[in-house]
Design a protein around this nucleic acid. Sequence first.
RNA 1: GCGCCCGUAGCUCAGUCGGUAGAGCAGCUCCCUUUUAAGGAGAUGGUCGUAGGUUCGAUUCCUACCGGGCGCACCA
Length: 599
Amino acid sequence: MSWLDDLQKKLPEAQMHILNDAKSPSGVPHVGSLRGILAHDAPYRFLKEKGVPVKYIYGSDDYDPLDEIPGGQSAEVYEKYLGVPLCNVPAPPGSAHKDIAMHYISDFFKIFEEIGVDAEKYYMRDIYRNGTFNEAIDIVLKNVEKIRKIYYDVSHSERSPHWYPFQAVCDKCGRIGTTEVIDYDGKEVTYICKEDLVKWAKGCGHTGKKSPFDGNGKMPFKVEWASKWKYLGVTIEGAGSDHNTKGGSRDVASAICSQVFGQRPPTNIPYSFFILGGAKMSSSKGIGASARAMTNFLPPEILRFLMLNSKPKSEVNFEPTEKYIVKLFNDFDKLHDKVLNNQELEEYEKLVYELSQVHYKEKYFTVEFSLILTLVQLPHIDIYKEVAKRKGSELTEIEKENINQRIKAAKFWLENFATEEEKMYLQAKMPKDAEEKLDNVQRAFLHKVATYIENINWTEEDLQKAVFAAVRTTPIQQANAFTAFYKVLLNKDKGPKAGNLLAYLDKQFIIERFTELKYDNLKYYIESATELAEIEEWLNKEADKISTISTHKEIIENNYFLDINVTLKDEKSFIKRLHINDVDTEKTFEEIRKKIFTK
RNA sequence: GCGCCCGUAGCUCAGUCGGUAGAGCAGCUCCCUUUUAAGGAGAUGGUCGUAGGUUCGAUUCCUACCGGGCGCACCA
């Protein structure tokens, strides 16, 4: 059982269900609008899948007045348009569109295509102008007392005694936000374009009389909302928590819908906001929180997954941290991999996965986002080749496209959200952390790598081999060796494949960096020595594979060490080290040698 | 003031119509090694915010309270 099943149960009988959502195109749409789009798209797809006749319509509320200077636009240019219907406000210079409403909404509608939302678009300017709302306007004007009472009863908001639920477009100045209707004779309204009706716009003072129909004006938001439900036949419409509060606009519209139009209000889908790093993303705060920025960042199926993986009523608390983003991709990939491997999905997993899909119908291989994030930061790396290697075969076009999207996401994240610490930087100087934390064995290991790579071909493969050879011939734990390796180069404990990393760096630089940290030779020998028993155990285990064994005696400041050099049949060499404290050292050496060679 | 959401393992969270709790990451123990932003195996870890109530049985339903987040109360 999902929230969608619950929703379906609540639906009234209808020949065709119509889902509606709308946006006022008064600025760059903020990312939160995507939640609304998908909160409607989910039931749309769900019902369609179940064979229920259903349509999803999405409106541009472009007959709303401009009520603030759009973010990023010049106040000088737009101040005089405050109060004017958005569809009559000119677009910013350079725009491909005539009016500002189209300017903003057209890119927003493009996003619909990108994230696979199949909604039928409509524009309020058309709805008003073509007379769809004429009947509603007449009813509303005649029921002014009833509506006034609803406003008061539901939201405790008192309208002036002259108030009518309608705003005419002023014949003189073209504003709609500043006019107050004072009379309706059944055919025409009398209005005054007031200077002080609202704080954000100034009317021209004109008094006029005109028909309220065919685009001559609009109903206020809450009344208009109810009219949409009635005259566009809306049966399902959600709303964000800003409208959904008790006594809020949704309640007012519902009351008008049922009491004035005699129609059951649509089934609600209450949804919460999409929050960025703990703060509501607002359109006025600019591009950073825009829907466009988010779609430029996340691949469409990830974005859908992000919005649909939780119930609509719970907030999505998006954080652009590495941990959060990587987990987001991984959570999606987990479902994706289950499908790829023909594993059974839980019912809700299946639902979420299907709702997240955009257009891929066939199976495709994908790689962890964290790997892409690493590879993107290494120049000269053929990411497609690396992915193909992991897949084990050539990449399909879909897979290449998928990787492209992930590369784009990784780059976007690195540019916009990554902290300096999260970025992988080649350290210009020896990191302090390396100086403080690396022990003598680790330092000695780095020196050894330096000698090993001095005279080899500077290729990924040879470098990789050389690093591992150095690991084996230093009595060191492999994990410690690699920690040292990444620490001096990147100031991190882990990193990309050693050979890859070295291959694109300068040899001289590497050698200097690896030999920069000095170490105490005696301490190195002492710290890297192991117990005889341990060595014996190891030799026993590898006995079948051993090709040759030799030993080397080392005396440092009266400390005796025995290096046991073992070469396996596959030509890998290992060095194990023994620290000998016995009184009769020479004798002990001989005994141990005998012991070892007899194996 | 009113409304909604959340409070579950160290961290981030699942737990979708009641049957004494799960995942990922981190930590721990081992294994693997020219696959180190890797893989594999295992153990550990929670009086499910608090207090009541309904029930044979509550993380789940109800009530109150505490703590956190968001929204509304003018306009959309």
